[in-house]
Write a protein that binds this DNA or RNA. Sequence first.
DNA 1: TATCTTTTTTAGCTTAGTATAATTATGTAC
DNA 2: GTACATAATTATACTAAGCTAAAAAAGATA
Lengths: 167, 167
Amino acid sequence: MSGLTPRKEDYIKAIYKLSERNRAVRVKDIAQVMGVRAPTVVGIVSMLKEDGYVEQEPYGYLELTALGREKAKALIHREQLIYKFFEDVLKLPSDEAKDNACAIEHYISPVCLERLLFFIEFISTCPHVKPKFLEHFSKFINDGDDINLACVACCCHEMSQESEVAQ
Amino acid sequence: MSGLTPRKEDYIKAIYKLSERNRAVRVKDIAQVMGVRAPTVVGIVSMLKEDGYVEQEPYGYLELTALGREKAKALIHREQLIYKFFEDVLKLPSDEAKDNACAIEHYISPVCLERLLFFIEFISTCPHVKPKFLEHFSKFINDGDDINLACVACCCHEMSQESEVAQ
DNA sequence: TATCTTTTTTAGCTTAGTATAATTATGTAC
DNA sequence: GTACATAATTATACTAAGCTAAAAAAGATA
């Protein structure tokens, strides 16, 4: 009964991901990937069964229902957007990006996520900004705090003899 | 005893913020801003007292210890960095930005936060990128999904073409 | 001073999420 | 086809964070 907590959402995602890799998903597998003991999984999963996200014959394998799969896909989509931002834009190492995306996914509002998506789109599809901007930011990260060193790669720099930028 | 949970961190921040506004902080005030009942506050605060973050005479006002203030400042600093990103870069409404920053603050890793800080610095201090980039992104948000409409404001665009902006 | 109101505290209950230990079911090997 | 190994489940208990209801302290007022 009752709604999905962040933790239950994590379990739904885990079952989905395992079922893509393994075919047969067992309580033990979930316990392993979630870093908990089997009884914990049984407890959470029994709630997910009541809520219609999961099906399981006694002592058998676990499967997501159609509802569960839809939910999982939506959750993983959210997670992926955030992951993409952390990895592609902020240039975080893949693991770090993944962990952070998974952790904060539950707490970001729809509006915030939408705006983040806008931003990723903006950065990665605008034909004028995309290549220079990301390259520029990469340099900024690598060279540390020396802004001017990074800035020589900027597209705007190339035309900066014409328009002097204040501030 | 034991460590700080995300929720306890929220209470420390709340006490700090209240003490800046009010002078005297009461259980009732914290209950109000945290959206809980007084006994909940008493319970959490009694743990924070044991851990040395808070001091209170019986039935009296609450005060952060030196340790508590340091902790609060560090937490609020983190929160502010994320808030700044959401508001200044992603252009979220202030309330939305604040709520999201507060919610995810506990879950973002130090590395991720550092990188976010880099990014804010990059966006807001690079003299070549700053003005054009943010202006450009604002247009992108306002004009929705039409990339090309947004892109006519790009500094790179001006460089290559001499066309007037269709707003 | 005595009473009434407000605030804090205590006591006891609930739910989510975890654990260990014991029990039950399944499956495989002889 | 019994016996052992593995896996799932049940029983029980703990912690964090919340609640209500009632008791106790402080403050205000007639």
